[in-house]
Design a protein around this nucleic acid. Sequence first.
RNA 1: GGAGAGGUGGCAGAGUGGUCGAAUGCGCUCGACUUGAAAUCGAGUGUCCGAUGAGGACCGUGGGUUCGAAUCCCACCCUCUCCGCCA
Length: 426
Amino acid sequence: MIDLKQLRENPEAFQASLSKRGKFDLSPILELDRQQRELEIERSQLQARSNEIGKLVGQKMKSGAKPDDPEIQALRDEGNQVKSQLSELEPKEKEIKAELESILLTIPNLPNETTPVGKDEEENVEVKRWGEEYLPKDSEGILPHWEIGEKLGILNFERSARIAQSRFVTLIGAGAALERALIQFMLDRQIAAGYTEVLPPILINTQSLTASGQLPKFAEESFKCEKDDLWLTPTAEVPITSLHRDEILAAEELPKYYCAYTPCFRREAGSYGRDTRGLIRLHQFNKVELYMFVRPEESETAHQKLLTDAEAILQALKLPYRVIELCTGDLGFSATKTYDLEVWLPSSDKYREISSCSNCKDFQARRGNIRFKEAGKKGTQFVHTLNGSGLAVGRTMSAILENYQQPDGTVKIPEALQPYLGREIL
RNA sequence: GGAGAGGUGGCAGAGUGGUCGAAUGCGCUCGACUUGAAAUCGAGUGUCCGAUGAGGACCGUGGGUUCGAAUCCCACCCUCUCCGCCA
C-alpha cells in the first residue's frame, strides 16, 4: 500500500511516479481522505464531550448524588444527545474509510527512481548474460523438454489431464526423483547462503493474499476453496509475508532471510493457448522461494544479494541465463524494482523466465502491518520486504532436459546435482 | 463430529459497570552500588490517528445495552483440553 500521509503531502510526485506504470487517478483518494479527516475531527470532539459527561456523572454519583438528581438527569440527556449525533457521524466515517481503504488496496507500488521507464515487456532492459560457453553448439535435432521427458518416460501430461486437467504434470521415476533432488539442492544452497528454511501452510486466508498484494485485484489468478476463506498459495511469497504480519520485530532481529519450498497454484486465467505444452506454465508447480525482511536502509543491498543467490543456482547447474530488469510497465503490482532471471531453452531458441527478484520496499509491510522497533527509540518503522525465486523447479527441470540432452536421446545430469540424484545420466 | 475452557500490553497474568490504557511479575532502557559482572535498589518502558499540540481510538472481531463497557447482552472468528475419527 502506498503511504497515504506522503501522498497527501506530495500528490504530484505520486501521480508522476505512478503514471510511469499506467493510468491511475489519485484524486478520489485525496478527496475521500479530506472528507474522512473532517469527519474524524468532528467525531473526536463529540467523543471528548461524551467522555467528559461520563466522568462528571461518575464523580457526582460517587459523592452521593442520586440517579434522579436533576443535575445528573441533565447530563444524561446531553449524553444521549451526543450519542445520537455520533450515531449519525460514525457510519458515514466508516463508510468513507472503507471506500478509501478499498481504493488504496488497488493502487500498485511506486516504481523505484532507477527503474527503467517503459510501457511493456518490450522495453525491459537486459543487464547481463552468463554461461554462453554452455549454450548447446548444435541446434540440429534439439527436442523440446516434453518430448525428451515423455521419451524417457519420466513425465506424463496425458494422464495428468485425466487425473486433474490440462496444465498438470505427473512426474514418474527419475522425473520425480529429479524434481525432489532439485528442491533439496536449491534448499541446501540457500540455507548455506544464510536463509532459514520454512515450510508454511499452502492453504492461506484472504488477509494473507491481501498483505502481499495478490488481492483484491488478482482474485482471478488464484484457486479458492469456497467454503473456507482459504486459497491455494500462488507462491510462497504470500504465506511468508504473513509470517510476521501484524508484528513489531526488534531491530536486532533484522535482517530475516527465509527460504521455502512450496507447491504453487495458479489459474493462469487469460493465458489460454500460451505455453500449452510442457512444464513452463502449469496450474501446479514447485518453487523454492527466497524472502527477506530488512531495514529500509539495507534493502537495495539485500536486493543484490537476492539476485546473486538466485543466480548461484543457475551457475552451479551451468545453465546459461540472462538477467533483465523489468521496466515500469512490466513491473509486478507490489514491486518497486525487479530483476528477472531468464534461462536458455534451446528448443524455443529463447530465454525464459525462471526467477523474479523484487524489492517491494515498505509496500507489503504497510499492507501487512509488519514493523520493527529500535530499542530506546520512539515509534516504529515499516520493514522492507523482498522476494525472489530461487528457483522455479519445473522450469529448472525443463532447462536441464533441454540444455543437457545428448544426441543419443539421453540427458546428462549437471555435476553439482549428481550427488543429489545418485546418477550421472537419464 | 460431541463436550468443556479461554482469547487482556514484548511475554506471563490480575481485573465482573465509573480517573482502567489497564495491578503485579518477567523482560527491556537509563541510573546508583561494584575493579568488572551478577545480585540488589531507584526511575522509565504499548500501538495507532492527529501538528512531536488539544483531543480521540485500541483489552479476539462486529453489533447492542448504558450518561459511562476490558467488565453486561448477541453474533462471529480463533486457540486450548477431553472424547470420537484419522496420517
